[in-house]
Amino acid sequence: MQIGSADYQTLVKRFSKNSRTAKNTLNAFWTGGLICILGQALLDLFDSQKHLTHDEAVAAVTVVLVLLSALATGAGLYKPVAKFAGAGTLIPVTGFANAVVSAGLEFRSEGLVTGLGIKLFTIAGPVIVYGSAASFIYGVILWIIKTLA
């Protein structure tokens, strides 16, 4: 007797081990927190530079974190850490950088233009696409409010 699709889905749920959420969440918490402490130290450093505005200091922190992430990714260190840290290394801006840099390394073998150039944002692309789409909509709303006022 062949089992039906609905019955089988129930069976699969029963047989599939779940992720160890408590442990994963704790690891994500403290690794993500540590990256933010590093970010805070950098922010304090750049804030103390007279020629930078606060917004520019925030951007400078991002640039440094992206650089560190790129170096770690290139040296093959990011992946083993991320395997342990999960969202702790995914959610900070370092995770965004890792998605871009790892794609660059991977698809370099298909050429600088046809591989690297085309595939660079193969994972991180949606972040930019929907982030800027959302900010555009927000901008239009702001403009309408401003025009009406």
């Binding site: 990011y78 992946k79 850490v81 995914l90 995770g95 790892s102 794609a103 390394l105 698809f107």
Partner: peptide
């Protein structure tokens, strides 16, 4: 994913 992409 790319080999160096950090995922679980």
């Amino acid at each position: 994913f790319p080999l160096e992409y950090g995922g679980q």
